[in-house]
Amino acid sequence: MTDQRGGQARGRAHAPRPPRERLHRGLTLSERRAQRRQALLDSALELFGTKGYAATSIEELCRTSFVSTRYFYEEFQNREDLLASLYEDLLARAWEEVLAAEVEPGPDYLRRDTRARVGAFVHALLDDPRAARIVCLEAVGVSPALEARRRSAHLRYAEALANFFLDYFPEGTDPGHDFELVALGMVGAINEIIIDWMERDEPGSLDQLIDVVCELFLVLGTSRWGNPERWGTRPAR
C-alpha cells in the first residue's frame, strides 16, 4: 500500500540491523583479541628464540607482552599451544616467501629457480636467528603432539618439493614410487644443515649455505632422473 503521494506505506517492517561491536579505545573486541594474540606471539618469538622455550614461563610471556594471564588463556591453552602456533606461523611465512620467489625464463632455469626458492626459505628463517632457533631447535622433542605437528609440516614440505621437481619432468616420465621419500630426505637434510650452520662458531655467509643446499637439492632431485640440461629452460607443466 502507498500513501497519496505514491510513497511507500509507513510502518513497513525493516530487517533488523546486526548489533555493532562496542568500541574500547577505538578497537572492537575482535580487534583487541587479535592485538593481544599478536603481542603474545611477538613475546614468544623473542623469549623462546633467545632464552629458550624451557626457560620461559607464562608469567614472563605475559609481563613482556603486557597481556594478563587471564587473556593469555583466552588465546592459548598453555605454553606449548603458544609455541606450536608460533611454529606454524613461522613456517607459513617462510613458505609464502618460497612461493613468491621468481626468476626470469632462460637458460639454466632449473638451477636458478632452485636457488631462488632455497634462498627465500633460508633467508625467511636465518635473517632472524630467533625464527630459525624456534623452528629447528625449540619445537623439537617438546611433546608427542608437537612432534606430530612437526612431522606433518615436514611431509607437507616434502610433497611441495616433489611437485616442484616433477614440474621439470618431460610428459610421460615416471620418477618412481620413492620420489616423495627422496623429497622427504631433502627436507630433513636442509633442517640438519641449518642446525649445523647455527651452532658453528664461524658459520660462514648465508650465500655459502644456500649454495650447499641448492647443490644438494639438484644432485638428489636430478641424478636419478636424467640430465636436467635436456629438460628445457622452463617447467614442463
Rank of each mutant, 00 (worst) to 15 (best):
P235H: 07
R151D: 13
G119L: 02
A236R: 15
T28K: 07
R70E: 04
L126D: 03
N227Q: 07
D81F: 01
A132Y: 01
E215I: 04
C62R: 14
L47K: 06
F169H: 05
A116E: 13
L161S: 07
E171G: 05
R133Y: 01
A131I: 04
V212C: 09
A148M: 09
A100L: 08
L137N: 08
S43H: 08
R133N: 07
G172C: 13
R93S: 09
Q38W: 10
D127K: 09
Q208F: 05
R33A: 14
G7T: 04
F179T: 01
D42R: 15
E229G: 08
R150H: 00
A55L: 14
V142I: 13
P203H: 11
G185Y: 01
F48V: 01
I195Q: 15
A162N: 05
H154D: 08
R37E: 13
G52N: 04
R200H: 07
R37P: 06
L126F: 13
G226D: 03
I58R: 07
I190A: 12
P235R: 10
A131W: 00
P105W: 02
Q35G: 09
V140Y: 12
P107A: 15
Q38V: 01
E104Q: 14
L220S: 10
T69S: 12
R130D: 02
E102W: 05
G52W: 07
F72V: 00
A92G: 13
A13E: 04
D128G: 10
L181V: 09
F217H: 14
R117L: 04
A139T: 14
L209Q: 10
Q208W: 08
S143K: 06
L155D: 06
Y168R: 12
R79Y: 09
I190E: 09
S152A: 15
R156T: 10
N191Q: 13
F217K: 08
G232R: 12
A84Q: 09
D128F: 01
E192C: 10
R117G: 00
A162S: 12
R156P: 02
